[in-house]
Design a protein around this nucleic acid. Structure first.
Lengths: 351, 351
DNA sequence: GTGAAAGCGCTAACAA
DNA sequence: TTGTTAGCGCTTTCAC
């Protein structure tokens, strides 16, 4: 009688009885860790099929200490960047027969601590922490966890104690800056989520510094709210206070979309009178108007590599290689950026 | 010595020894299910604190059959609507001390089946299935699961066997249609993800039918790809084949954003020459240009209610109330919709 | 109120 | 190759 749809009520002992062997032999067949005589194996498999047996993973976890579950911390999933990270992480885990325990931290260290505590007592096999917002101080706390931990999408203060797979955010900012410099822009503002995106800002500034130009702090407009609305507000403020601006770099696309909206509201044509550059290359970047020039981030590749790093550690039974891996961003030039307008050009740049 | 950061190596037995009681008494203190003399309790608590004891949830699960974990199936998280559902579900679970096991199904029934099988053997306490795409046939399979299951964001063929918390999608489509009718539109197209969004389409048509108008099948353009790009393609096709169209309803915002892009590309002013209405009211709807008129869906409320329904069932130890709960959408009129252009108006509608 | 014993379903070590 | 014996850390039942 096939009860395969009847829940996991069938136990290994029942299978053993039916097959005329012991639990252990059933276990050997199921796990495949020990050779079993083909004939015996066939009997066991038959019994498994007939009874609709499924191993109880909880019991297995208790016995082995492993759970084929990996935890993932993200600040939020309501954000195209992180949702891609989550999705790709889950993909990779699924490929390897693991499950994903999703924990959103909402930038709340206390919440992260609570999650952390229960993860440990659930014997998760590994933990990936994506995005640094507000967790930096609590990293030491992770030191003694009983499972491998890795970090990804990490921008601020990369700790030397844990393996990190992240983006070269400084380079990303640099690409944005260089693009605007190549178009001749000098008077630019940055709409930024700070301090989180400090590296992007640094890289952006480096591109200007190379030409002897500076992007003063007064031209950096922090957003109060990490949404398009926040980008709108910050960009509006920037453009109102400094009508001479010819370009805005927003440290991520959602802010840039808000900035496009602000430009429109203030009657600034994009890219005719103002260039806007974003960061992330989310799906919408291609479909807003004008389509957004942005720095593409290999978020899926990053998530995949981080998970695979952890899984390797889990399966080898040793701590993960403590390395820092930086993935390269690329610039995607679309319609929101163009040459600096003639009538706003200042002194000729040095190079 | 406080080893609270040292992993869950401290066991209940050690606490018991230290406090001079048995495991059982420690268990009684920890779970609070049995009265313990205050003096004893104090000793136990002290021992717990000193040793940094954390209960092993896996062992507890094995003994009780419950895991304080709830599974969530979503087609994807790379979609503003579902990511809100996931986030809110996780919030509610966290409030109740539960964890979220996230399973993306990618519209792949086989993948869903695999997930389902391991969920059962992990003793999850409940399962929420959000979004129906491609799972419909496999619902009977869930019948004998050993835990409560509920459905949300369900549009097609609502099954009578499981509790459902969803949106009145027909009403949502109706709101979109009525809005366009009130603006005088008659020659309209629908860009739709089918058959998933059949209810929205039905409701939309009902609004026109009320005025004696029809939205023929030829004016329904299914998208090949559930992204802005897909919306762009379908809307372009519609507008090219039928320049007389004065409005497009897209069955979700991301498609609508693609449709806005298509309108622009084809030189159709929005809303001057073409109105566009979306569905979902995602964050970006407010910030694209022109801002998108759309039907707002209470996705978070839906997720919360569904999870709370399940948690109630878990905690009462009985199957969830088998009910159908429909949450009401609302129309959010923004700038992408306007009166039908003078020169395209056809015969005066009946009412 | 507390202790002793049994068992959740499985794997691990060893013996046969 | 297979069976035997333990035990993972907890809860549960029942004495006391």
């Amino acid at each position: 009688m096939d009860r395969s749809t009847g829940g996991a009520v069938v136990t290994m002992r029942e299978v053993a009885e039916r097959a005329g062997v012991t639990k252990q032999t059933v276990s050997n067949v199921v796990t495949g860790r020990v050779r079993v005589r083909p004939e015996t194996e066939a009997r066991v498999r038959a019994a498994i099929a007939e009874l609709g047996y499924t191993p109880n993973l909880v019991a297995r976890s208790l016995a082995t200490g492993a759970s084929r579950t990996v935890g993932l911390f993200v600040p939020t999933v309501t954000n195209a960047f992180y949702s891609e990270v989550v999705e790709e992480a889950e993909n990779v885990l699924e490929e390897h027969g693991y499950h994903l325990l999703l924990c959103t931290t909402r930038q709340d260290a206390e919440r992260a601590r609570r999650h952390m505590a229960s993860l440990a007592s659930r014997s998760v096999d590994a933990l990936l922490i994506a995005g640094d917002d507000g967790l930096d101080d609590h990293l030491p706390l992770l030191a003694g966890a009983g499972f491998p931990i890795a970090l990804c999408a990490w921008e601020t203060e990369i700790p030397g104690t844990l393996p990190v797979v992240t983006i070269d955010y400084e380079q990303a900012g640099h690409l944005a800056g260089r693009h605007l410099r190549e178009l001749g822009h000098e008077r630019v503002a940055v709409v930024a989520s700070l301090p989180a995106h400090a590296d992007r800002l640094d890289g952006f500034r480096r591109a200007f510094a190379r030409d002897g130009l500076t992007v003063p702090d007064a031209m950096v407009f922090p957003v109060s709210d990490p949404t398009a609305a926040g980008g709108f507000t910050a960009a509006s403020e920037a453009l109102r206070a400094h009508p001479e601006l010819t370009a805005i770099f927003a440290t991520y696309d959602v802010l840039a979309i808000g900035a496009l909206d602000a430009a429109r509201t203030l009657g600034r044509a994009v890219p005719g009178s103002l260039s806007v550059v974003g960061h992330d290359d989310v799906d919408e970047a291609r479909h807003v108007h004008p389509s957004l020039t942005t720095v593409a981030i290999p978020s899926r590749a990053m998530a995949r590599q981080a998970i695979e790093l952890l899984l390797r550690a889990v399966e080898d039974g040793r701590p993960p290689v403590n390395s820092l891996q930086l993935l390269r961003p690329t610039l995607v030039a679309r319609d929101s950026s163009g040459p600096v307008p003639r009538d706003s050009s200042g002194p000729v740049p040095r190079s």
